[in-house]
Design a protein around this nucleic acid. Structure first.
Lengths: 215, 215, 215, 215
DNA sequence: TATGAATGAGGTTTCATTCAT
DNA sequence: CATGAATGAAACCTCATTCAT
């Protein structure tokens, strides 16, 4: 059972947004554009960014942008692809371990650390979902899959008598994920709170809320 | 102790952003504009709305807008003022009652019902905070005050031995509020889930998480 | 039976391209734009004209254009509406008169005179049909209706034994109209030939070609 | 005396617009570009075609274009050179034969057949003359020479008493050529009419119009 | 020669805001 | 106060042409 990184839409897979350029030079230019876009988006927000800001940041002509991306939306997707590895959890087990409490603690830690490292990007993703229904859908879809996985873990723990049997597994999974992701935004992006305090509190709330007993 | 309506920024207070018109006719025109703005904002989003859409919806000329509001931002604030009563909790005690569980249940119910009634507006407020730092600050300020009040209730209950003493009151208050408000957005605005299930789950999670014992 | 003015698309009718403005001032501005557009189109061609040229010619700001027309195509239609009266034939009988030769002469004269008066516009209409399939269709539709009317006149004269019975009426009508309109373009717009010579030749060719006998 | 192919500008002659490449490979590349350009121009029109469409169609890189042509206009001229043989009459006598009617019929047939074979190209040439004064001049120059040649034939026939002496030879030649070329465009390119009917009608109209008597 | 990425002038379009009536 | 036309800065986007490899 893991944290709640529903902010990182699952883009990659076969859905390549634009054909990648053939030459090494093109690859470099495209990468420079994506890097520049990330800087500009994180600095000015998605709406506040103009295409010319991006090309200027990348040190190239306006028209070059359109060699690689048809729109601001598309380069944003490329930025997401670029950073989603950073946001993914390092690889915690998806099902409950022998020590569910330890799993929760580890995965919340991983999530919050990644969140903090990519604070500007997370902020950006919260913004961007309102711009474009497609982005909204991306985020929700990812959150949905996430919640389902966690719901299975919860149901499993309930069967083993380790978790409060009166909780609806799916709704519980959604609620707890919501808690972590929203709190991360507030306390790590807008405010600058002590991560350890956030982590401690969240962990304890999860354990309490689920009624988790040591196995 | 109440739910988590940090989406309703505490706006006006005594500070009115725009002078109200002197005449009854002016008052009516202004009100019509605000009503129209709400319709248009909820329909097209803040960014997607043009001032001409608003005046058209209100059935008046473009220029009239500027008689009452200096900008789109300002009329948005007026829309918020208009609806914040609806979103406020009907009047629950701010301090713990004799039966804290009942208070939680009542206030969460009030919050979620109000949220559902004003789903479009809540959605709008989530959007708008990214547009303008002022809106962001408004929302945060309100959330902060809300959390502080709830934190006091939690601390009080801890002193009385009714709540897990290892929880940081303020961070806990923020986390639980985050949970409710985020879940409300997901399950009542984007998805259309059963409110009662949401409510039950949230209530049980709060009670468990706080380790609340019947008084 | 009349000449061959298929270059003036029959626009008007109920097909109003844009809503006319409500106020007198708006009406004046719109008219000024259409006048300016005609000047610019005739001077620079349709493709060679920029919207800013039109507003500059009209002495107004760029944005004003879009208050009245959504595109260059639409203002072109308005120009056509403006001038189509000038291009219409004064009102010749649609069926053969007692003296078909006189009818031909009169209607060819009217056509060529109108063509000469509006030479730049006719030139423009030849250009514009290649730009936009809609304009092409407009011209062809008008030519078609024109040919059908003339075909009926020819058939009628054939029945009365006044015209070569071996001619296909419709194809003949199209051929003769083509002759006049194309020659008008070449000799009155590109070259500057003597209208009277053109007229005499065309008249004699028509009469000969049809094998017209004095009634 | 021949039909009316004024749409095929008499381009090259000895004057080649661009130097031909030295190597056989270069010659092949150039030819591939011209072929591709014809395809693209006929499909998308001159204005609607982009140079990258042409190089893509030819399967080569953008930059290669400029090795062979300095501009879109120039490759268009090369396309014209490519096809003008097809459009030229197969070799009918330019002066009146013993049987002028047979000559007319043969040359009109040749013209219309060629027109039909190259319908898209003819359409294109009508479009292109409005783009560039040079193209316009090209077409007119060719039409002029054509008309002069035909005018000489007509004058000759008049001297021999075989043609209506009241017709101005040059204007008559222009008018009849106009008729055929315009009708060809309308009935063979835009509409799809029966060539034989077009041919019959045109032949009969020419013979009638000229007042041609069997020699 | 051939390549294809890079350029940037030139056009279109939008819309918050002003202003004359 | 109300009107609605007029404004023009600001963004977007295209594509012929150049240029480094």
């Amino acid at each position: 059972m893991t944290g709640a990184p529903e902010e990182v839409p699952a883009l990659a897979g076969p859905t390549r947004t634009t054909e990648l350029p053939a030459t090494a030079r093109g690859l470099r230019t495209r990468a420079a554009l994506v890097d520049a876009a990330r800087v500009v988006f994180e600095r000015d927000g998605f709406v506040g960014s103009r295409l010319t800001d991006i090309t200027k940041e990348a040190g190239m002509a306006t028209g070059t942008f359109y060699t690689y991306f048809p729109s601001k939306d598309e380069i944003f997707k490329a930025v997401l692809e670029l950073v989603q590895d950073e946001m993914l959890h390092p690889g915690f087990p998806h099902v409950a371990d022998d020590d569910p409490i330890a799993v929760i603690e580890a995965s919340n830690r991983a999530y919050l650390m990644a969140y903090q490292r990519n604070r500007l990007l997370n902020r950006l993703m919260h913004e961007v979902q309102w711009i474009n229904p497609e982005f909204m859908e991306l985020r929700q879809e990812r959150a949905r899959r996430f919640a389902e996985r966690n719901a299975r873990s919860i149901a499993d723990l309930q069967k083993r008598g380790l978790v409060d049997p009166f909780l609806d597994p799916l709704m519980t999974a959604r609620a707890l994920s919501s808690m972590v992701s929203r709190l991360a935004l507030d306390s790590l992006v807008f405010d600058v709170d002590d991560v350890e305090l956030v982590l401690e509190t969240v962990n304890r709330l999860w354990v309490n809320a689920l009624g988790l007993k040591r196995a």
